[in-house]
């Protein structure tokens, strides 16, 4: 798993190097460059910050300062199962913060982060648009309404079981073919 992640990151860096040729060293290019990286790769890997700093010939601390100022930039890769917990008004009133914290505890990551195996990423959002179902959590494309802190574990369990079932299925096919 680690090797595939490393290979992915190397590919991302190579792609960024290629793209950077289109940008000049003007100070005004910094944010467009960061936006380009995020658009192509969904996040800003740590090495990409150094690479951009080299290209612009400014300290990497300055690039980091700019990138952390804007909420639109992410520093963690999206997980395979992105989890969004709604903390809009209706969900907030129905104690969505408890649900978010339970996700944080069960996954061992903080809001805005991604688990080490890149299976899950956790995010808070302002409103998903189905306040009647409050409190709401969105896993991938699926909306889970009427959430409760106690349902968090079941949700994660379901994803884990689905994943294991798919793996078994694959194994079976492999065995049948050989």
């Amino acid at each position: 798993m680690d090797e595939t992640i490393q290979a992915q990151e190397a590919a991302i860096l190579e792609d960024i190097g290629e793209q950077l040729k289109d940008y000049d060293q003007n100070r005004g290019s910094l944010i467009p460059i960061l936006q380009m990286i995020q658009q192509r790769h969904q996040y800003l890997p740590p090495d990409s910050i150094r690479k951009v700093a080299e290209h612009m010939e400014i300290p990497s601390s300055e690039v980091y300062g700019v990138a952390t100022f804007y909420n639109q930039f992410r520093f963690h890769p999206p997980g395979k199962n992105p989890i969004k917990v709604c903390l809009g008004t209706a969900c907030h009133v129905r104690a969505a913060d408890v649900i978010l914290e339970n996700f944080e505890r069960k996954l061992g990551i903080k809001e805005g982060q991604t688990s080490d195996d890149r299976e899950f990423s956790l995010e808070r959002v302002a409103c998903v648009g189905c306040c009647a179902l409050a409190p709401v959590a969105v896993v991938g494309e699926t909306i889970h309404g009427h959430m409760a802190p106690s349902k968090v574990e079941g949700l994660l369990m379901r994803i884990q079981i689905h994943k294991e079932m798919a793996e078994r299925e694959k194994e079976k096919e492999k065995n049948e073919q050989s």
Binding site: S60, Y64, G65
Partner: peptide
């Protein structure tokens, strides 16, 4: 000549931070 330190984050979350070297 160049600062190794920077302000990171924004508003009440702002801190002073290092990033990389020169």
């Amino acid at each position: 000549g160049q600062s190794l330190l920077t302000f990171a984050g924004r508003g009440i979350d702002m801190t002073v931070s290092f990033y990389g070297g020169l």
